[in-house]
């Protein structure tokens, strides 16, 4: 498979701050690639260098085989961009904006009405941009990014500031784009989002990529265990008792109940239920917690990812 984006030793400095530090990676064609990290980690600087908005101080970038700085015009024909907090002319109507943006490109989707339909914007075609809600503005911005039927779609902070419903709509939308076979390069500081949407995830912190793999791969690589958390009605029990359950490596007792650590949630749960049956105690509030990308980030950096 060909690479849609190749970055080699890319560096960007702002006076004393190195925003992006010797970053190398490549994105395959048709892949949904996520760049994840806390605010200020260098996500936007990196994505904007690939889009040709900023010039790297070192290293090389190729997108669709083109140099974003020297062949920017050619590249911009083939990419769609959602900037962080995009704005367009505030008083322009949605359908006017689509027509305007379509006029900039040699090749376009042809039918902007269908684009409006894809993003459920038909009702808003005659609304002015500034009167739209955050979610609708974001959808309009995406419609504009798709107007040239781009090969690569860049989505910078796709769901930041959106309510949960609007966020889920965005996720559904990325799924649609995936099916069309477009390459998507997105940034987010929501681990959950990266885990759900991306084929591969690069974790960036202080300008450096500190991990890059599939979400599953990152979690497995971490070697973290799942947790089985529960309470029992007669809580006067010793945690050590549960360590006899097959696949449980460790058991802990806290005022909130018991926590079992395991690499096989299924076996641990079955063993626990059997034990409860045999010994005649009642289990309540059982839940399991699988390790997720948040844990990966915490393990790698010693910090939790927060806005």
């Amino acid at each position: 498979m060909n690479s849609a984006i190749v970055c080699e030793h890319v560096t960007k400095r702002y006076s004393s701050l190195t925003a992006v530090n010797d970053v190398s990676f490549s994105v395959k064609e048709g892949e949904i690639f996520g760049l994840v990290g806390p605010n200020g980690a260098g996500k936007t600087t990196l994505i904007e260098m690939i889009e040709g908005l900023r010039t790297p101080d070192g290293g090389s970038i190729r997108a669709l085989g083109l140099d974003p700085n020297k062949q920017g015009g050619e590249l911009r024909e083939k990419i769609g961009v959602l900037l962080q907090a995009t704005s367009i002319q505030p008083d322009i109507k949605v359908k006017e904006a689509l027509k305007l943006f379509a006029s900039f490109y040699e090749h376009t989707v042809g039918d902007t009405a269908e684009l409006l339909h894809t993003l459920s914007l038909e009702d808003k075609a005659n609304s002015r941009f500034r009167k739209l809600s955050g979610g609708l503005k974001q959808r309009t911005a995406i419609a504009l990014a798709l107007v040239n039927d781009p090969v690569i779609l860049f989505l910078d902070e796709l769901t930041t500031g959106l309510d949960p419903q609007a966020r889920r709509n965005m996720w559904d939308f990325v799924d649609k784009v995936r099916k069309e076979g477009k390459t998507v390069f997105l940034t987010t500081h929501y681990m959950e989002e990266a885990e759900k949407l991306c084929d591969r995830v690069a974790i960036i912190d202080y300008g450096k990529i500190i991990a890059l793999d599939t979400p599953r791969g990152l979690i497995e690589q971490l070697g973290a265990e799942s947790k089985v958390i529960f309470k029992i009605e007669d809580s006067d029990m010793d945690a050590a008792k549960f360590e006899s359950i097959k696949s449980v490596s460790r058991a802990e007792k806290s005022p909130d109940g018991f926590t079992l650590y395991t690499r096989d949630e299924n076996a641990a749960l079955q063993g626990l239920v059997r034990l409860a049956d045999k010994q005649g105690f009642r289990l309540t509030s059982i839940r399991t917690e699988s390790p997720n990308l948040d844990d990966v980030f915490l393990t790698l950096t010693g910090r939790e990812i927060r806005e």
Binding site: V81, Q89, E106, L144
Partner: peptide, 10 residues
């Protein structure tokens, strides 16, 4: 950011 948005078009 309107100018910036226009800048990533051709």
């Amino acid at each position: 950011g309107v100018l910036k948005r226009l800048r990533v078009t051709p």
